[in-house]
Design a protein around this nucleic acid. Structure first.
Lengths: 215, 215
DNA sequence: TAGATTGTTAATCGATTAACAATC
DNA sequence: TAGATTGTTAATCGATTAACAATC
């Protein structure tokens, strides 16, 4: 059976549906329809139905969607229904912040270790190992590592990415201020703070020209 | 004269052009054509010409684009041709990391102060003030603040944003794991790390289905 | 002038929205 | 059954790509 290719635009909205459904479930809401979901996501009901139907019929005509059911389906679609081991390359402030952020654990991400060339002065939560970069190959061999976070300086990022993919890691989350491109068989997501800040600067500068709506 | 509305898709590419042109200039490249730029950005030459022509004719037929000239034009378009004062709400690890990141200074961003309810144990670079949140109104009144960074917990983010916009700040850069929506007359950019991580998880899970290309 | 390459118009492609038949 | 709401097909809209006349 041929899986339909899901467009990038749809994938970008999936985490938003998920966050929204988690919230609704926490509030005790049991069912929701496409109109209500659309209002929460600030899009059209049509788009909600179109998006969700990409993955199968999760709703019921005349009723709507069961919140907990839909949330769990999207969680599974996102691959959050299992543990994923994470290592962090670079123990600077960003690396330390990520290593200490407890929110990730809620969705099954387990930060296993932080690697750096200088191990002194890296402070993380108990349970997260701090190790010299030379220990990386052994660690990856001996542990179940799905995701590598690149939290190095820009000039070291591409090298670090090559290194981890060379060790067989197939998911790279890059925080260095440069865009890493995905090679065949490797998933890459860039958090490019500079680009975001520059866009903010652009939007700010052009505020008067806007007719509302951006963000 | 009626300014043409620039689409979000184009704005998202502007920082990439800018980064690319800065790099070319540093390497001593003096001219570049749309085909070469397209190769660096991994898009089509047609798109490069289409994008740039939104802002005016920066090139020269038969020649191409002058690297330094185009870089400076895009810098100005992004609003990076001046100083912009930045304050940070929230002195946790993310807030501290941002307060200490020196790369922003290169583009005219000046981190002036970090505010929090608990000022102890916040360590930043010399020259950055650390103050209790109660000092915020006075500080904003007495200083030139363009941008407020929200680096609080998720539940405090919306309140913090209201607070700073209430004080007249018109640009908000949000790092809390929730999407702040822009009200009329306020520019907002969200760095939503959770969404990015979930998308990475999705891409990783669906790697085999991909025909290359993502990131 | 001949060659190169832009800026722009036209064609294509994909994503969003609207409409409605299916069905709970 | 009647009312509500989905899933899906068709229409619209916008963004990307191709083509080419303008021009350096």
């Amino acid at each position: 059976m041929r899986e339909k290719r899901i467009s990038e635009a749809v994938v970008r909205r999936l985490p938003k549906y998920y966050a929204c459904l988690k919230k609704l479930a926490e509030e005790g809401t049991e069912k929701v329809n496409s109109t209500a979901l659309a209002a929460l996501l600030r899009c059209t009901a049509s788009q909600v139905r179109q998006d969700l139907s990409n993955f199968g019929g999760f709703g019921q005509q005349g009723y709507g969607y069961d919140v907990a059911f839909l949330r769990d389906r999207i969680r599974a679609i996102l691959g959050l229904d299992r543990e994923q081991g994470v290592i962090i390359i670079g123990g600077g402030r960003i690396g330390q912040a990520l290593a200490s952020y407890e929110g990730f654990a809620d969705e099954g991400f387990r930060v296993l270790a932080v690697f750096d060339v200088d191990v002194s002065s890296i402070r993380v939560r108990p349970g997260v190992r701090v190790a010299h970069i030379s220990e990386l190959p052994d660690f990856v061999r001996d542990n179940d590592v799905e995701i590598a976070v690149i939290a190095t300086q820009a000039d070291a990022a591409a090298g670090a990415a090559e290194r981890v993919t060379g060790l067989g890691i197939r998911a790279v989350w890059n925080f260095a201020p440069c865009d890493l491109k995905a090679e065949e068989g490797v998933a890459v997501e860039n958090i490019n703070m500079s680009e975001s800040l520059f866009m903010l600067s652009y939007k700010y500068k052009n505020l008067s020209k806007e007719k509302g709506k951006n963000g």
